[in-house]
Amino acid sequence: MGNRVLVIKEENCTGCRLCELACSSSKEGIFIPERSRVKVIGDALEGWSQPTVCLQCEDPMCMAVCPAEAIFKTATEDGDPFVQVDKDKCIGCRRCSTACPFGAIIFFPKSMAVKCDLCYGAPKCVEFCFYDCLHFLELSNKASEKRNKKISALTKKACKEISDRELFRRRAIFSPVASKTSRQGHH
């Protein structure tokens, strides 16, 4: 052990979303899927679904942008790497959420960044996935290296796409407001 990652075999997902209920109830002590670290996406009309969850990137964007140095890399007792948020340091600026291309960081109550921590090595979502969709599997060093490279490439690709799309929206929505702020300084 020491190199385990969450593996999703999406073709097996039934859409039951027990993973969300298991995650939220074990982490928060109540059934509150809104605060689940694993989120199921899908389309019931088309009949597909699949869980999405933090990839525990080797070179995490969330960590790179955190101004409070609240996000850091660590490992479970068995050495499985994961990305963790230090609640005490988090200032709630949401830069990590803006930066993560995979939508893996949520915020509550109001200001705290929350993400999957692999339940420190015994993920509840896997425990309650009865149809072999979610797995917690050991990767060989070679496989791990390959995965990291692929995620890194995908992150780059996703960042480009997000920035292409977001650029215009941000310009249109926030830039005019920001300009006004500057004007107010020069009477």
Binding site: E11, T14, G15, C16, L18, L21, G47, W48, F130
Partner: peptide, 12 residues
């Protein structure tokens, strides 16, 4: 083509 479940049910 695919097994489906209701929300929160393991019977699928």
């Amino acid at each position: 083509i695919r097994q489906r479940a209701c929300y929160g049910c393991f019977l699928s």
